[in-house]
Amino acid sequence: MRKFHSIPRIAVTTGATAAMLIGLTGTSHAAEGTFFYTRADTGQQTLLGSTPNGQCIAVHGGATQATNDTDTDAHLYTNSSCTSSPRYLGSRQSDEYSAPYPTYVLFG
Results as ranks from 00 to 15, higher is better:
T17W: 11
G61D: 03
H5M: 11
R39H: 04
S6Y: 03
E32P: 00
S91G: 03
A18T: 03
C56N: 07
Y37T: 08
T38A: 14
Q44K: 10
A40L: 09
D69L: 03
V12M: 11
Q65Y: 11
Y37M: 10
N53G: 14
G61K: 02
L106D: 12
P100W: 11
S98C: 04
G15C: 10
L47H: 11
A99F: 03
G15A: 14
G23I: 06
V12P: 01
Q44G: 04
T38S: 05
G15Q: 12
H29W: 07
T14S: 13
F107P: 11
L48C: 06
T51R: 04
G43K: 15
V105H: 06
I7E: 13
D41Q: 02
L21C: 09
L24W: 02
G62T: 08
G15W: 01
Y97G: 01
R2M: 04
I22R: 00
S94R: 12
H60V: 14
T83D: 15
H60S: 15
G15H: 04
T51Q: 14
T42F: 05
A63M: 12
G62F: 09
T46H: 12
A16F: 15
A16Y: 00
S94P: 08
V105K: 08
I22S: 03
L106R: 03
N79S: 12
N79E: 12
A18S: 07
G26V: 05
G49K: 07
T78S: 14
F107C: 04
S6H: 06
V105N: 14
A40W: 01
A16E: 00
S81D: 11
Y37W: 08
